[in-house]
Design a protein around this nucleic acid. Structure first.
Length: 473
RNA sequence: GGCGGGGUAGCCAAGUGGUAAGGCAGGGCUCUGCAAAAGCCUUAUGCGUCGGUUCAAUUCCGACCCUCGCCUCCA
């Protein structure tokens, strides 16, 4: 069976074949954060999704080159920097660090490269110069440069590859302020924005005067510089398909760097939005969560990661605190099973048992059907538990099961990082005292010792092999 | 108004032209001195509504209802 992705370009499931079919190298670009504030849990759905793609490609033997940009110059950033009277880098650096920390909390593998928009200004200018030279971009009196969709189309460019909008009759929404810039056409978009007083200290010199780059051009400049003019995968949230990605295609393919028939990106993958309690996240509804909000409530990164990975990425997913609690219980089920397998396997080693790996692979090959993959995982857990309870599993089989788990967890990334906490001597002493009391049939004393241990944060789990202590979560 | 997703048990969520994965919650049981923990078993004659095609529809087609998103800030 082959790996298939839903390509937004074709609106269909397509087998994934890298641009260089014989090789393993895969260029993968994911639109990263705009670092003007803490990212919220909806943003992280997309980044956990990108991590899933990257990890699964690695699992399937590819060598993805994962690039995620950091947008560190943009309207909101400029506004904040100006009102706070601090250097751009100081402001954005803070949120970038927080973002990268959050990614680690969610156990996302660090992208191989995280280019900053502000470090690619010359590359952006070079692209804009090409577009101007080819006649598909024009300068306006205020020192801005716009991309002309009409001229791009006249030159043979195809606009509207990702979304099917009626560009002749675009409804002019309230967001389009016609007085903002002197655009020739409402659909044209800014490549370069001429400097205005509100920009404060945020500007760069350019052939068109001082100013700053438009929003879309950074992704074209950085992706083509780092991955080549044509690369395999481009990911992002569904809201980016238009206008961001559509414009990215236009300005990239409009530079004349591609040979006939060659495209900027082969596969476009878009993650659907996260809803919170059935509604789009908004601060006024009070359903706006950052990762840190959830950590404060006592949830962990792996629980959030699990929840974000339970649904298929192309379906909008309803995030609830109840769901997060369900993730916690579900994960502990896996943890218990792994602990028992580990105990049985002792020092045995074995290659991965094939069944779990196979079912897992079949699920994810099918456009990353993570929900089906979890189904395979939990059926495996049940089978293991049953065999463990019946004592029909040999140590070597337990080792093989663990190997299989470790293999798929390279993709899932939810194994507990640290080994289970060992109980302090005080607890062990109390436990011994309880055992002695039980043996003497002094159950009242035994129960009060149990309560005491519980009050100190530990649970006694009486098993056929004797009592065990577990941290009471 | 245009375009695109969805509506599957109490909640979340896969899936299929031949009779519904998985998780949480609920119920039963095992273990236990009793509990707890853990484990096992179990839980939708039904897949928004109404028609149509078919030997057979939750799945295909049509209409309708509801809902979410995008339509130049957006993950």
């Amino acid at each position: 069976m082959a790996l298939k992705f839903f390509n937004t370009l074709s609106r269909s499931l397509q087998e994934f074949v890298p641009l260089v079919p014989s090789g393993k190298k895969v260029g993968m670009y994911c639109c990263g954060p705009t670092v003007y504030d803490l990212a919220h849990i909806g943003n992280f759905r997309t980044f956990v999704f990108a991590d899933l793609v990257r990890r699964y490609l690695e699992f399937r033997g590819f060598e993805p080159q994962h690039v995620m940009n950091v947008t560190d110059v943009e309207d909101k950033i400029i506004r904040h920097v100006r009102s706070a009277q601090i250097p751009l880098r100081e402001y954005t650096g803070k949120f970038e660090q927080a973002f990268l920390e959050d990614l680690r909390t969610l156990n996302c593998r660090a992208p191989h490269q995280t280019p900053h928009a502000t470090e690619f200004i010359p590359e952006m200018i070079a692209l804009i110069e090409k577009l101007v030279a080819r006649g598909v971009a024009y300068r306006t009196p205020d020192g801005s440069v716009y991309f002309s969709i009409e001229k791009y189309r006249a030159a043979g460019g195809q606009y509207g590859q990702l979304v099917h909008l009626d560009f002749e009759n675009l409804r002019v929404g309230e967001r389009v302020r016609s007085d903002e810039y002197a655009k020739e056409s409402v659909a044209d978009f800014a490549l370069w924005k001429g400097r205005v007083p509100e920009d404060g200290a945020v500007f760069w010199p350019s052939p068109w005067g001082e100013g700053r780059p438009g929003w879309h051009i950074e992704c074209s400049a950085m992706s083509m510089k780092l991955l080549g003019t044509s690369f395999d995968l481009h990911l992002g949230g569904e809201d980016l398909a238009f206008p961001h990605h559509e414009d990215e295609i236009a300005q990239s393919e409009g530079c004349g760097l591609h040979t006939p028939g060659q495209h900027f990106v082969k596969y476009w993958l878009h993650a659907a939005h996260l809803l919170v309690e059935g509604k789009k996240m908004s601060k006024s509804l009070g359903n706006f969560f950052t990762l840190r909000d959830l950590l404060t409530k006592g949830y962990t990164g792996r629980e959030v990661r699990h929840l974000l990975l339970t649904a298929h990425y192309r379906e909008s997913f309803n995030f609830t605190l109840e769901g997060l609690a369900a993730s916690r219980t579900a994960l502990s089920r896996i943890d218990e099973c792994l602990a028992k397998l580990t105990e049985l396997a002792e020092t045995h080693t074995a290659p991965p048992a094939p069944e779990l790996v196979q079912r897992f692979t079949e699920a994810l090959d099918d456009d990353l059907n993570a929900a089906a993959a979890w189904g395979a995982v939990f059926e495996w857990v049940r089978q293991c538990n049953k065999a463990l309870a019946d004592h029909t599993m040999a140590p070597a089989a337990a080792a093989a099961a663990l190997s299989a788990w470790r293999k798929i967890d390279e993709v899932l990334g939810i194994s507990p990082a640290a080994a289970a906490e060992t109980a302090p001597a005080e607890m062990l002493a109390l436990l011994d005292a309880r055992q002695a009391a039980r043996k003497a049939k002094a159950f009242k004393r035994a129960d009060s010792l149990r309560d005491e241990i519980k009050a100190k944060g530990w649970l006694i789990e009486d098993t056929p092999k004797g009592p065990k202590l577990k941290r009471n979560a």
